[in-house]
């Protein structure tokens, strides 16, 4: 228990933790602020203004239309030919603008809709928090190894595996707390924008439940990222190890493989790309469409599809988690601390 307490103190004393948390909070605050600036609630005044704008636009096109018809008729009176090609039969007089083409909606300013736009914002939040958690997790144990702090600690607490797992537990607890707090603030901020500066949409209990599930999936991703960063840095005994593997995985998977698949024309190449599984995890499933199977020249075609489910994602992510934790435990148990 005393160790856990010490580790909590250590985590929040670290500059990396403090700086990253500050930057993250400031960075995240930009999102709701941007929505506040852009969103305008559709009050009766705004709607009336949009209605007026639609009418004005309609009137304007009617004037233009009548001018055109008049021009055509004048030409016809001068005896010009080929006018039907340019204006249509009867000088196009039958195809005048219709009032219903000009709806108020087209002239309404952007209005934030909480119900529709909150779920994608959760994905953004989870992605940002996951990256931060990865770095904080990696540096939390990486810097300890690298600076000799780990060795000092082991002189006090010689049971290596409990020491490592306590540190990991503290990290996960802290990141979970962070996710819950930031998630709550995030939800409150966007709800307030919807309520006072936009539109909440129809919020049923089912909608809230689905928000909660998305939030839970996002939180799981954040904790996974923290654990992976921690374990990789502990295996490599250096923060850079985790960052290197992380960046390497992104470069290889998201850039290298994509280019390679493009070159060798792999069917459903996205199946082998990491982010596919992350998205599928978050969105419950992801449909990959194989456009390449279609010969567009030969007419319409329904391309074959491949669906990645969140269950598949969870197997993959779970395997990565188990491997990383096992590797870290094995390495601290077996390798000399020098």
């Amino acid at each position: 228990m005393s160790l856990a307490k010490a580790e909590v103190r250590r985590l929040f004393k670290r500059r990396v933790t403090r700086i990253f948390l500050a930057i993250t909070l400031i960075g995240l605050a930009i999102f709701p602020v941007a929505f506040v600036f852009n969103s305008k609630p559709s009050t009766p005044e705004v709607r009336a203004a949009a209605e007026a704008e639609a009418t004005r636009n309609f009137d304007q096109s009617v004037v233009q239309f009548q001018a055109m018809v008049a021009e055509c008729e004048a030409a016809k009176a001068r005896g010009e030919t080929g006018l039907d090609d340019r204006y249509g039969p009867n000088c196009g007089a039958d195809f005048g603008p219709q009032r219903e083409w000009y709806t108020a909606e087209q002239f309404m300013p952007y209005e934030f809709n909480f119900r529709d736009e909150f779920p994608p914002s959760l994905a953004v939040l989870a992605a940002i928090l996951a990256m931060v958690a990865f770095v904080i997790g990696a540096s939390f144990v990486g810097a300890e190894w690298n600076s000799g702090g780990m060795m000092n600690l082991l002189l006090w607490r010689p049971r290596r595996i409990p020491v490592l797992l306590t540190k990991l537990g503290v990290l996960i607890g802290a990141m979970f707390g962070l996710t819950v707090v930031v998630g709550a603030l995030w939800t409150a901020a966007f709800w307030a924008i919807g309520r006072y500066d936009g539109n909440l949409g129809k919020l049923t209990a089912g909608v809230w439940q689905s928000f909660a599930l998305s939030g839970a999936r996002g939180a799981a991703l954040v904790l996974l990222a923290a654990t992976l960063g921690f374990c990789l840095a502990s295996i490599g005994r250096h923060t850079a190890m985790a960052l290197g593997v992380g960046i390497g995985a992104i470069v290889i998977s998201e850039i290298g493989l994509r280019i390679l698949f493009e070159l060798v024309r792999v069917q459903f190449g996205d199946r082998w790309i990491l982010s596919t599984y992350l998205v599928a995890w978050f969105d419950k499933s992801l449909k990959i469409t194989n456009w390449r199977a279609c010969e567009l020249a030969t007419g319409p075609c329904t391309p074959p599809e491949y669906i990645v489910t969140w269950q598949q994602s969870s197997v993959l992510l779970g395997a990565a988690l188990v491997l990383a934790v096992f590797g870290a435990v094995w390495s601290i148990r077996r390798r000399d601390v020098i």
Binding site: L3, A6, R10, R14, A143, G149, M151, W156
Partner: peptide, 23 residues
């Protein structure tokens, strides 16, 4: 053990008090 290293960004007092906590 052999010119021990400490986490460079903590003060001496923090370093020791963290060890004291842990132990």
């Amino acid at each position: 053990v052999e010119s021990p290293q400490f986490f460079p960004n903590f003060s001496a007092r923090d370093t020791l008090s963290l060890l004291a906590d842990a132990g």
